[in-house]
């Protein structure tokens, strides 16, 4: 079965303004899909709608089937019976990595305790088995000195370490779909490359599908395969990322590619001097 089917997804705010219009795409198991677009293009809202987690007042219509269960069917309310049904599916299948690792981690919980929460809940681990699993999760994201990091509060870690902890938490229960919403935007460029490599290899190792959201074409090119370009809430162009870069059709895609190439050219110009 297709892991995620989104069709005719439309998101409106309280006043009825259309924020995302008739967006459709699918994610097969193990596939890597990119959603690329500028800020305000609706890419993050699409991801939240898919997870059934739109902020209050914002409503979605259309369908988003995760493993066959419709996440949008009932009106999305913060506390409702259908919410309960959704969390059952969502928690076991989907996991997310967010843009800002500082707010993605509870400032009052040590890294180890936060990673332990989903492990305890979904894998039923307790005591020393739980501690070992937390250590393994931190190991997996290539953090050294895992004992110290497990006992640290988020503010005691660097940005890169925090994002690694967030990734460890997201992947701890082996989700079948990982939604990464601008996971490297808040990081230094050198750390960005490391985190992208890490995501790339972990997703491959676990066979998870990846929905990668970014505004940055080179970043998308690094991890995503099939990619959708969003502009003002609509998908304006779709295709394998290599084709989008070599032969962009839509005006906006061309601008994106040209902008990325200008940076490259500037770098090369400098190295030639």
């Amino acid at each position: 079965m297709t892991l995620l089917v989104v069709s005719g997804l439309t998101v409106r705010d309280q006043a009825g303004t259309v924020l995302v219009e008739d967006v459709s795409f699918t994610v097969e198991a193990g596939e890597r899909i990119g959603l690329i677009g500028e800020s305000g293009s609706g890419k993050s809202l699409t991801a939240l709608a898919v997870a059934g987690l739109l902020p209050p007042g914002i409503t979605a219509t259309g369908t988003a089937l995760i493993d066959g269960v419709d996440i949008i069917a009932a009106p999305v309310d913060m506390i409702s019976a259908s919410e309960k049904a959704r969390t059952g599916v969502r928690g076991k299948i989907v996991s997310t990595v967010f843009q800002e690792p500082l707010t993605a981690l509870d400032p009052l919980m040590t890294a180890g305790r936060q990673i332990a929460v989903p492990l305890r809940r979904f894998r039923g681990l307790r005591g020393s088995a739980l501690r070992a699993a937390v250590g393994a999760a931190l190991d997996e994201v290539r953090l050294t000195d895992t004992d110290r990091i497990a006992g640290s509060y988020p503010h005691q870690l660097s940005g890169g370490q925090r994002q690694r902890v967030a990734i460890a938490m997201a992947l701890a229960c082996r989700p079948r779909l990982l939604i990464a919403d601008e996971p490297t935007t808040a990081l230094d460029v050198t750390v960005q490359a490391e985190i992208l490599d890490l995501l790339d290899s972990l997703v491959a190792a676990h066979g998870s599908a990846l929905l990668f959201i970014t505004h940055d074409l080179p970043v998308a090119a690094r991890v995503a395969r099939h990619t959708h370009v969003l502009r003002s809430g609509r998908i304006v162009e779709s295709g394998p990322i290599a084709e989008l870069i070599t032969a962009p059709v839509h005006e906006y895609t061309r601008t994106l590619v040209a902008a990325a190439r200008r940076f490259d050219a500037a770098l090369e110009g400098l190295t030639r001097d």
Binding site: M78, T87, F98, T103, P107, Q114, R121, A166, C173
Partner: peptide, 25 residues
């Protein structure tokens, strides 16, 4: 905050989110 969203995605119930994240913060 994103950690609330993360907890909701992880299927943590509201009472637990309130006790574990909201009240301490």
């Amino acid at each position: 905050r994103d950690y609330i969203t993360a907890a909701r995605i992880a299927g943590i119930s509201w009472p637990r989110i309130v006790l574990g994240h909201v009240l301490p913060n």
